[in-house]
C-alpha cells in the first residue's frame, strides 16, 4: 500500500463528538488530488497495536495543500477514533494511505441527490465542492437527531438545495417525498447508518427506481467477537483476538494480504477458504448471498469465524 507520512496541522472540534483533522505534507509538498467521495486509511500506532481506519475526505478534491477528515468519537468502538481524539496533537506525524474512491459521483447523471445520516455527511462535503465546480444540479438532505450532534451544519454552504432535517425538532426526513417527482437521470447517493441505506433502497424500489441509479456507502468497523483460530496452507495457525479483526491478526503475523477500505466494501482483501468446519460470520457488503452461503470466501477485514477449523488459501 502506498502511504504518505503527513503532519497534523489543525485539530478543530465541530461538535461535542466530532473533530476535524487536517493533514499536510511535512515539507509543504502538494498532495495527490482526489474526487468527491474518496477516503483515506489513517494508520494509528496505539500501545503496540497498529489500527488502520478509513475516513472520507471532506476537503476540496482539487486542493492538494492538505487532506481533511471529520472523525466521530466512538467510545464503544475499538479505539481508532478515540486514539485520534485523545492521543493526537498538532505537529504529530501519521501515515495516511493514498485516497481511494468507492463512492464516486456518476457524472452521467442529470442530477445528483445526496442523502446523509449523521456522520455520513462526510463524503458529501467533498462532493459538494466538486459539484460547485461542475455546475451540476444537485439536492442534499442531511438528517441528524439533534442540532448539537449535527456537526456537518457548520461545514455546509448556505444554499437552497441543502435541506437539514433535525428529528428532535420534529423535522424528520420524509424519504417518500424526497424520492418522488425527481427528474429522469437523477442518481441517489446514501451514506449513513445501515437502517437509512435500507430505508432508501426500500422506498426507491417501491417508487419504481431502477437499482442502477442507487449508490450507497457504509464503512463497517470490524465487529468484536469470540477469539478464533485460522490455519494457513502451510499448516501455520493464527490466533485472532476478541477485539482484533482477522486482517489485523494476519498483518500482526506478517502474512501479506492486499486491502483497501478495511470496511467490507471494496473487495480487495477477498480471501479463498479451502476448508471450513464451522460457520463464517460474514459482515461485509462485498460477497453475494450465494458466495456467503457457500463458505468458500471470506473478507478478513470485517468477518469472523465460529467453529473447529477454517483453512485459508494463504
Amino acid at each position: 500500500m502506498s502511504a504518505l507520512t503527513l503532519r497534523v496541522t489543525e485539530i478543530t472540534p465541530l461538535s461535542p463528538l466530532v473533530t476535524r483533522f487536517r493533514f499536510e505534507h511535512p515539507e509543504g509538498a502538494g498532495l495527490p488530488l482526489f474526487s468527491g467521495g474518496a477516503h483515506v486509511v489513517v494508520e494509528m500506532p496505539d500501545a503496540g497495536v497498529l489500527r488502520r481506519n478509513a475516513y472520507s475526505l471532506i476537503s476540496d478534491p482539487l486542493d492538494g495543500s492538505g487532506y481533511e477528515i471529520a472523525v466521530r468519537r466512538e467510545d464503544g468502538g475499538r479505539g481508532g477514533s478515540r486514539f485520534l481524539h485523545t492521543k493526537v496533537s498538532v505537529g504529530d506525524l501519521l501515515r495516511v494511505n493514498l485516497p481511494v474512491n468507492l463512492f464516486a459521483l456518476d457524472l452521467r447523471a442529470k442530477k445528483q441527490l445526496m442523502i446523509a445520516g449523521g456522520i455520513g455527511i462526510t463524503p458529501f462535503l467533498a462532493q459538494l465542492k466538486q459539484l460547485a465546480r461542475l455546475q451540476m444540479p444537485f439536492e442534499l438532505h442531511y438528517a441528524a437527531r439533534s442540532r448539537a450532534e449535527a456537526a456537518g451544519i457548520a461545514l455546509l454552504p448556505d444554499l437552497p438545495q441543502i435541506h437539514v432535517h433535525i428529528s428532535d425538532e420534529g423535522n424528520r426526513m420524509d424519504l417518500g417525498a424526497i424520492l418522488s417527482g425527481q427528474p429522469l437521470g437523477t442518481h441517489v447517493y446514501t451514506c449513513g447508518p445501515e437502517g437509512l441505506i435500507a430505508a432508501v433502497d426500500e422506498t426507491a424500489a417501491r417508487l419504481g427506481w431502477p437499482k442502477g441509479a442507487l449508490h450507497s456507502e457504509a464503512f463497517l468497523a470490524p465487529p468484536p467477537g469470540a477469539p478464533f483460530t485460522v490455519t494457513l496452507k502451510s499448516g501455520r495457525e493464527i490466533e485472532v483476538g476478541a477485539h482484533q479483526s482477522l486482517l489485523e491478526a494476519l498483518e500482526a503475523a506478517e502474512v501479506a494480504v492486499d486491502w483497501s477500505c478495511r470496511g467490507g466494501a471494496c473487495g480487495r482483501c477477498e480471501t479463498g477458504v479451502s476448508a471450513c468446519h464451522g460457520r463464517i460470520e460474514h459482515h461485509d457488503h462485498w460477497l453475494s448471498d450465494e458466495e456467503k452461503a457457500s463458505q468458500t470466501k471470506i473478507m478478513p477485514c470485517v468477518s469472523r469465524f465460529v467453529g473447529e477449523t477454517l483453512t485459508l488459501d494463504l
Partner: peptide, 8 residues
Amino acid sequence: AAGLPADA
C-alpha cells in the same frame, strides 16, 4: 439521452 436509466 433524456436520462432514463437503461434498467427502466
